[in-house]
Design a protein around this nucleic acid. Structure first.
Lengths: 114, 114
DNA sequence: TTATTATATTCCCATATGGGAATATGTCAA
DNA sequence: TTGACATATTCCCATATGGGAATATAATAA
């Protein structure tokens, strides 16, 4: 059984770092394939392949402008990741809260000795 | 060139849904392999293999208790994902802001006609 | 020591990459 | 129509799965 396809869902699509970089770039605004290629220092076919994956999971949209294909980010598609990972937020915050309490207790003890 | 290994980073580790489910379960507290197996309806070797991946990227820790291996979530390891995906949050919020403005404008125009 | 229980690991398989290399396709200008 | 430019796609390759099946390893009880 192979791994799930990269186009299965958003989690799989962004597992590849180059695709994350493309999204980072598009977050700053619409870009043509060539702009992505030169900005990230990738080969053009690479970029096209990655964009196809991103397009199939709905993370980007494309519009034609003459010879150019301009790609735009659909950031909302990342929400499932945000929601999933945010469900763990209380855990590391809880850990921090405990640390704060512990440090406060330490400080209170020091004040008692003064 | 193969895909990056699942143990390359956290993004790759959580691309597989079963591994996300394991993390969801561990978020509720430490669990033995057998508990994960029965809770998620997976086969034991499957679970062990997934746990190995999660362990190698630092998402879980394991302690021995007699015959049992108890696994615990290290949720902080998910922070890079949270940070990355949160950098896009302003985008979908911005889109909502614009929609509100647009709706407000529509409403103002309707008030003018009354 | 043997049997039971809990879990990790190995071997195997079919599958899907991501990039290289090359080519096909689409658009526009001359 | 041809050539230039922008981009998508195909073929190929080596690689790493995730699960099945089986087995190895570890811990405990009798």
């Amino acid at each position: 059984m192979a791994r799930l396809a990269t186009t299965t869902d958003v989690f799989n699509a962004v597992a590849e770092p180059q695709r994350r970089e493309i999204l980072d770039l598009l977050a700053r605004g619409e870009r043509s394939v060539n702009e992505i290629t030169t900005s990230l220092g990738l080969k053009q076919p690479q970029v096209s392949k990655h964009l196809r994956v991103l397009s199939e999971v709905g993370l980007v949209t494309v519009r034609k402008d003459g010879k150019q294909r301009l790609y735009r980010l659909r950031g909302e598609t990342l929400k499932p990741i945000h929601e999933w990972v945010s469900s763990f937020e209380h855990i590391w915050n809880e850990r921090l809260d405990r640390l704060e309490q512990y440090l406060n207790q330490l400080q209170n003890k020091e004040n008692e000795h003064e």
